[in-house]
């Protein structure tokens, strides 16, 4: 397994030989990856590769059969989701990532449930970073636009000041100009010192801004390398980027095993 850059920072998240799935269906069949502290790492791969399942497995929402997940050197296996976020890594799911019947402010306060103090300070920081949330703070989240909802979902996850933010397809279903805004925020969050692990369908955009990229296929590691280099790799281009636009639209309509299953998460 190649390591990100020789001079890379120490790893903040290490996943090794991870096997996980739903019921009888094994989605992840031995995935390994490393996120160095403060860096941006992206996971790409075709539908059904297990990208979203990987994210859920980290947060204890999918049962892990074997393998190891370590955050800052300590295993996350067997912990409750609330204990995992307490460690300093937060999660923005792909869909249903806000509480629609709670106001924007209540969503943010809920994200800060585990804060013992400094809730007001975090709220101010979030409003500063996402001014639209200040304008909409007393509106129910269900009435926000797709882009605003994504901003709220990120802000909710950032309330705890995580050192690693896990984003599951932050650009899914958003208009192109909104996608730009979301990616700009991701860069901004990273500049503030938070490592990012991103699962993305929008592979070109995501790889271009990533320190390291992993290609996942059939629940296994296929390739990895620095983001821009993967982007330039002819093999990656032909297998995973070429014609992605068309293939992606088509496959959106068919249910993906596991990856979109909300039942599995409950």
């Amino acid at each position: 397994m190649a390591r990100p850059e020789p001079q890379a920072a120490e790893p903040i998240l290490e996943i090794s030989g991870l096997r996980a799935g739903y019921h009888d269906l094994e989605i992840l069949r031995g995935v390994s990856l490393v996120v160095p502290r403060g860096r941006v790492v992206t996971i790409i791969g075709p539908n059904g590769a297990g990208k979203s399942t990987l994210a859920k497995a980290v947060f204890g929402l999918v049962r892990v059969r074997s393998g190891e997940i370590r955050f800052e050197g300590q295993s996350l296996l067997g912990l409750k989701p609330s204990q995992i976020v307490q460690r300093g890594l937060c999660y923005v799911p792909q869909t249903q990532n806000v509480f629609p019947n709670l106001t924007v402010l209540e969503n943010l306060r809920l994200g800060g449930t585990l804060l013992r103090e400094g809730v007001e300070r975090r709220l101010r920081a979030m409003y500063e970073m996402f001014p639209i949330l200040w304008e909409r703070r007393h509106q129910k989240a269900g009435f926000l636009s797709g882009g605003q909802r994504q901003m709220l979902a990120m802000a909710r996850a950032l309330m705890l000041e995580p050192r690693l933010l896990l984003l599951d397809e932050p650009s899914a279903g958003l208009a192109p100009n909104v996608v730009d805004q979301v990616f700009a925020k991701v860069v901004e969050i990273n500049r503030a010192g938070c490592a990012i692990l991103m699962v993305e369908q929008n592979a070109r955009r995501a790889l271009a801004m990533s320190d390291w990229g992993y290609v996942l296929d059939m629940g296994e590691n296929a390739l990895d390398g620095p983001g821009p280099r993967l982007l330039a790799d002819p093999e990656v281009a032909s297998l995973y980027l070429g014609g992605l636009g068309g293939a992606r639209e088509k496959s959106r309509e068919t249910p993906r095993p596991g990856a979109g299953s909300e039942d599995g998460a409950r």
Binding site: F59, G60, L61, K80, P81, S82, I84, V85, Q86, C90, Y91, P93, Q96, N97, V98, F99, P100, N101, L102, E106, L110, G111, T113, L114, R156, A157, L160, E262, A265, R266
Partner: peptide, 16 residues
């Protein structure tokens, strides 16, 4: 109310 809205999200938001 959050748990009633979206149980999985409440879990990963740190709700006990």
């Amino acid at each position: 109310r959050a748990l009633s809205d979206n149980a999985a999200l409440a879990w990963v938001s740190g709700v006990d």
